[in-house]
Amino acid sequence: MAAIVRRQVASKTPSLSCAVTLFPTTGVRTPAWRSQPNKTSPSPFNRRGFRTSPASYQKKYTKDHEWIELSDDKTQGTIGITHYAASALGDVVYVELPTLDLQVSAGDGIGAVESVKSASDIMTPVTGKIIATNEKLEEKPSTINQGPEGEGWIARIAVEDAKEVESLMDLDAYRKHTEE
């Protein structure tokens, strides 16, 4: 029962964080939909659709329930665990983050989360160097449950070969994997 509730809460978070990041990326002080209320300008809804579709194109998933999202220039990837994994794991009480500058190969452990007395390793889906970690998770591990694919990201990696990311599952394939 608790797991179902968590899943519902978690699934709301990415659309929220997406709405928040929308305004800075417009580059104008007044949101576009207010200053140009005519039909030709994109509505916030369309604009959001426009922003997320290339991002989701670059967001990939692994069968171990990690996700990685490439930056626009494809040099960096943000890594985390999926909604599916976060709700299955239950309340996260501890997050072990990787060391900065750690050189890792695809499949290496880069940290762990502990929930329900169990420590689960987090693997990197791609080869590269760890360039940032989400230190908020040390203070507040439950951030992972609240937004595993948003503010609960785990690490950023300088990607050696962007093709490695492209070979992973897209959202549709990952959904199928979780339904198997």
Binding site: D64, V116, K117, S118, A119, S120, D121
Partner: peptide, 13 residues
Amino acid sequence: GSAGKASGPRGLH
């Protein structure tokens, strides 16, 4: 009392 570990394809209880 119990505890667990998970890594890739393997689990331990």
